[in-house]
Simulated scan of single mutants.
Amino acid sequence: MTTLEFQQVDVFSTTPFKGNPVAVVLAADSLTTEQMAAFASWTNLSETTFLLRPTSPEADYRVRIFTPQTELPFAGHPTLGSCHAWLTSGGRPRNETIVQECDIGLVPIRSEGERLAFVAPELRRSGPIDEALLSRVAHGLKISPSSIQASAWTDNGPGWLSVLLGSREEVLALEPDYASLAGLSIGVIGPWNPATDGTEAQFEVRAFVMSAGVNEDPVTGSLNAGLAQWLIGEGRAPQHYIASQGARLDRSGRVYIDLEEDKIWIGGATITRITGTLQV
């Protein structure tokens, strides 16, 4: 029997149990892919990660990311949660910027006081969405195609395609037909109205990840990264903003977006809620 250090980290919220949890297994090099997949299925969290020795000389550590059904090349809240667990377990970066290795490549991460932030990775797919697919998305979201203000592929690994609605209210009102959206990863975003919604955030986001066996993800770093690249790139969002996510799931996620020079940083709070050991 193998005993490994384990943490469960709450990401993207400073309020206990209101962010997105990720299970992190440290020094997991002894585990097989099958053991990793079995544990991720057992935790039944949106993602479970395994920290490993890096294979790149530039990386501080390597991570593998699993949903209950599949392995992902990259995901946002697992990136921040894994980095937090690595740091709190004694990890020391080679330089001021931490470098995570994952299947999508090397991801820079930095400390921002009480938050960690990662650089949005290059999109694997961008550009317009096929009209037939967009019609399927509108049907599955139970909205009129005319209520979609803009749309684009925002895929940085999980397969995201995204749509912009006219308001936070429209985003929160969605009651998708998940079965009709099987196999898709859909991001939906809409602006806050300062007069009625306040100024704590500027956009509301929801993430429907049927492709990974998760109907709705509470707070999603990879999606927010892709959304920021799309919306800032098209001038539809400012260079610095806060996205709110998770309200329909009784969460209070906050994702901090900052464009600096040619990099978009995606930041949020990271707090360990559970520590212990895993026996395999």
Results as ranks from 00 to 15, higher is better:
136 R>S: 14
137 V>D: 11
137 V>W: 06
139 H>I: 13
139 H>F: 11
141 L>D: 02
143 I>S: 05
143 I>E: 04
144 S>H: 07
145 P>W: 03
146 S>T: 14
147 S>C: 07
148 I>V: 14
149 Q>M: 14
149 Q>L: 14
149 Q>E: 14
150 A>T: 05
150 A>L: 11
151 S>C: 12
152 A>R: 12
152 A>M: 05
154 T>S: 15
157 G>Y: 02
159 G>P: 05
159 G>Q: 09
159 G>H: 07
162 S>V: 01
164 L>Q: 09
164 L>R: 13
166 G>A: 15
167 S>D: 03
167 S>L: 10
167 S>V: 08
168 R>E: 12
169 E>Q: 15
171 V>E: 00
172 L>R: 13
174 L>M: 08
175 E>G: 08
177 D>S: 13
177 D>F: 02
178 Y>P: 03
180 S>I: 11
182 A>K: 12
184 L>K: 10
184 L>C: 02
185 S>D: 13
190 G>A: 04
191 P>E: 04
191 P>F: 07
192 W>Y: 15
193 N>I: 09
194 P>W: 06
196 T>Q: 12
197 D>Q: 11
198 G>A: 12
199 T>F: 00
200 E>T: 14
200 E>R: 13
200 E>W: 11
205 V>W: 00
206 R>S: 03
206 R>K: 06
207 A>G: 01
208 F>C: 04
211 S>K: 14
212 A>F: 00
212 A>G: 13
213 G>Y: 00
213 G>T: 09
216 E>C: 08
216 E>R: 10
217 D>L: 03
218 P>R: 02
221 G>P: 03
223 L>K: 04
223 L>Q: 05
225 A>V: 05
225 A>C: 09
226 G>Q: 01
227 L>W: 00
227 L>T: 00
228 A>Y: 10
230 W>P: 03
230 W>R: 08
231 L>A: 06
231 L>T: 06
234 E>T: 09
234 E>Y: 12
235 G>S: 11
235 G>E: 02
237 A>V: 08
238 P>F: 11
238 P>L: 12
239 Q>K: 13
242 I>N: 07
243 A>V: 02
248 R>P: 00
